[in-house]
Nucleic acid binder design. Structure first.
Length: 721
DNA sequence: AGCAGAGTAGTTTTT
DNA sequence: CTACTCTGCT
């Protein structure tokens, strides 16, 4: 048997990870060490050498993107259709299980997936019904709380309430009512998918046994990101019957704040004591100096599993550090640098600008725009997250499944058809009393003549729209149904009449939705409508279509995980911003910030440029943040400060917080000359040692008489004297 | 139903 | 500073 195509071109550690015959294997895969490659090759190895049929493999990822990529690569490698392979996200796989075993899971056959938007609506409804003060207990917080409990594998009954803990007891009350409402409406939120399929394993041993027999190998990607319920799910499924390979990197665990438990790596080693450990430490992405910088930073974390990236590549250039005067200057410097990068014959798409929080993108965008540099911002609203799309989908959900109260509430009066808050409250009350769905409640109240006036006609209209669409769904195509939906519902017309470009864009999105459905295909025997609705709920799609233009990539450090770029900028690397002020207190959170820094640094292939601003306007206030501790953790020999156009020497940094030296009003005060005596209202007199530029961008270095040196932007209220 | 003005919060994000 | 939410008025 020729297995060379599986193991050729792998390094020793990679080959060991691919071919390891032990049932349990933990692969600690550093950034850029060929993690996905190992995962895919190991799957191929199982099929080719261990004779595992494609249907006997289960590969679990966190994002749909990762699942897609893995599927693609295995197809290319094995030259087989990937149909039989179970590759998917935790949620996708859980959903698939619940769909097959809805009865055993105590769900209606047509149960729907509730996304976080609809989840919030349901939480709000519950809180209003229970008359809980929304000012004291924000629904958002309740939603987050409930999701966290589910991530921890806890139902309302499992939560311990301490006497006097008003918060917890209120939350439990909401949780319990929310669960009841979801169950009644056949709705399952993201956390519930996992929780319930975990319970399915526990309550139906014969089902568990069936899958344990079926799966002959389980592989998990990004294992450091698993939360409690995901780990429990895996643990029960694998127990000691199914070989389980997990791949992860404790140094890249950056989602602790949403429930991910790095400790699951150690837990895995405890639960599966025979597990073999393979470390992938050779990095194929970055230069030696960049890796040294990354290692230097992450070395400051305690309790790491221990792993040091190395490369046999070139040293490369040291990391650059640019001290900007303010966030404008920072953005301009980045844009300038990109311009010369492009002038040197490189692509804009090879550059990424990474930042800690989304709010930072604005100034960067403005600079890029001013310089005419095309860019693309990642993150933001994805296609299926857009209001207009979700509204259109809510119609389809009702067509598919009348009991979907979340969908009913969402669109019963959208576009407005005279069903106001009062009528809705009546409907809800009746539904609650009779334990029936909103849909049924509407029907019965109409039949009983309990609706009148505008509400009556509006509701009748709404019900008949859904009924008519249902008739169409029986025999028509999916895109025909969608077209009919946006027309008949009045959604299209409604958005078209919205003023401004907003409405225009929404109509375009709706048309795009219809358009996307013309090519939508599903396997035979599967109901296309229900498949499509489920897919839309579980995969929100990309925020923007692939752009073909060569453009600079802007994103948060979090969303950069897994990506790589020849030239990387890390902007706003300041105490308070990165590490974020919210993470300064707890050591655990600080370590997560540090891992984020590690992720950022290891995105760079050839060149990394770190920038920070000595003065930054944030929330309308001027802040003087110190350089981030993470920069100070980079070994001195792999970092180099950028001198300002070789003319101004950056003086010793003297941080004097709370003293605003700058004000736009005095921008006219510029044109300083060497040796000129200046006066600062707070710091006294000094001498201009250097200056360049004019207006806003005049940079001057002042040696104050008290010995402090300052580098300032000359829109400071300095007065010549 | 729709708008204007007040008020307020303000990391990171996937499913 | 800004973007979003809520309230109260027409």
């Amino acid at each position: 048997m020729d297995v060379s195509y599986i193991i050729d071109g792998l390094n020793d550690a990679q080959r060991e990870a691919v071919t390891e015959q032990s049932d349990h294997l933990l692969v600690l895969a550093g950034a850029g060490s060929g993690k996905t490659r190992v995962l895919v090759h190991r799957m191929a190895w199982q099929m080719q050498v261990n004779r595992v049929p494609a249907t006997g493999l289960l590969a679990v990822t966190f994002t749909n993107k990762a699942a897609k990529e893995m599927r693609h690569r295995i197809e290319g490698m094995m030259n087989i259709p990937s149909r039989g392979l179970w590759i998917g996200t935790f949620h996708g796989i859980a959903h698939r299980l619940l769909r097959s075993h809805w009865k055993d899971a105590n769900l209606p056959e047509n149960f729907q997936v509730l996304d976080s938007d609809d989840q919030l609506r349901m939480v709000k409804r519950v809180m209003r019904e229970a008359q809980i003060d929304e000012a004291q207990f924000p629904p958002k917080q309740a939603q987050w709380w409930i999701s966290s409990q589910k991530d921890e594998g806890l139902r309302a009954d499992n939560i311990q309430e301490n006497p006097g803990d008003h918060f917890t007891s209120t939350m439990v009350r909401v949780y319990r009512q929310y669960e009841k409402l979801c169950q009644q409406s056949g709705l399952v939120d993201f956390g519930e998918l996992l929780l319930r399929s975990h319970e399915l394993w526990l309550h139906r041993p014969e089902l568990l046994a069936h899958y344990q027999q079926r799966f002959q190998h389980i592989l998990v990607d990004e294992f450091q990101d698993t939360n409690t319920i995901q780990y429990a799910w895996l643990q029960v499924l694998a127990s000691n019957r199914v070989p389980l390979t997990v791949v992860g990197d404790d140094d890249q665990s950056i989602y602790g704040w949403r429930g991910a438990k790095v400790e699951n790596i150690q837990q895995y080693q405890r639960d599966f004591p025979n597990a073999r450990l393979v470390k992938l430490e050779q990095n194929y992405r970055s230069t030696k100096l960049i890796l040294k910088a990354a290692n230097g930073v992450i070395d400051n974390n305690q309790g790491r599993l221990g792993k040091e990236l190395w490369s046999d590549g070139v040293d490369g250039e040291p990391v650059s550090l640019y001290a900007a005067f303010n966030e404008q200057d920072e953005a301009n410097y980045i844009a300038d640098t990109i311009t010369s990068w492009v002038q040197d014959g490189n692509l804009r798409a090879e550059c990424a600008i990474l930042y800690r929080s989304n709010a930072q993108s604005r100034v960067l965008e403005e600079s890029l725009m001013r310089q005419g540099i095309p860019y693309r911002v990642y993150g933001g609203l994805r296609f299926y997250d857009r209001q207009e799309i979700r509204n259109a989908l809510a119609y389809l959900r009702l067509v598919h499944y009348r009991r979907d109260d979340a969908a009913f509430e969402r669109v019963v009066n959208l576009p407005p058809r005279g069903i106001g808050a009062k009528s809705l409250a009546d409907l809800r009350q009746y539904a609650g009393e009779q334990s029936i769905s909103m849909w049924e409640s509407a029907q019965r109240m109409l039949d009983a003549g309990q609706m009148k006036g505008r509400a009556k006609t509006g509701l009748q209209k709404f019900l008949s729209i859904i009924e008519e669409l249902s008739a169409l769904a029986e025999h028509g195509t999916l895109h025909g149904l969608m077209q009919q939906t946006i027309d008949d519902s009045g959604l299209k017309e409604y958005h078209a009449s919205e003023k401004g470009e907003k409405g225009q864009g929404r109509v375009e999105n709706l048309e795009e939705l219809v358009n996307a459905l013309t090519t939508y295909e599903v396997e035979e025997g599967i109901d296309p409508l229900s498949e499509f609705i489920a897919q839309a709920a579980l995969d929100a799609g990309e925020a923007q279509a692939e752009d073909h233009e060569d453009s600079v990539q802007l994103m948060t450090l979090h969303s950069a995980k897994g990506l790589e770029f020849p030239l990387v900028f890390m902007a706003g690397v300041e105490e308070g911003l990165f590490p974020h002020s919210m993470s300064l207190e707890e050591p655990g959170r600080m370590e997560e910030e540090r891992r984020l820094a590690y992720v950022g640094i290891t995105r760079a292939m050839k060149k990394l440029i770190i920038t920070y601003a000595e003065s930054r306007r944030l929330y309308g206030q001027e802040k003087f943040n110190a350089l981030s501790r993470f920069v100070r953790e980079i070994p001195g020999d792999c970092i180099q400060e950028v001198r300002l156009r070789n003319t101004v020497t950056r003086p010793a940094m003297v941080a004097r917080p709370n003293e605003s030296m700058f004000s736009q009003e005095s921008a006219k005060q510029s044109g300083f000359s060497l040796g000129q005596r200046v006066m600062h209202p707070k710091f006294g007199e000094g001498t201009v040692m250097n200056s360049e530029g004019s207006g806003h961008h005049t940079r001057i270095q002042v040696n104050f008489d008290d010995g402090a040196k300052w580098l300032v932007l000359a829109y400071a209220p300095l007065e010549a004297c």
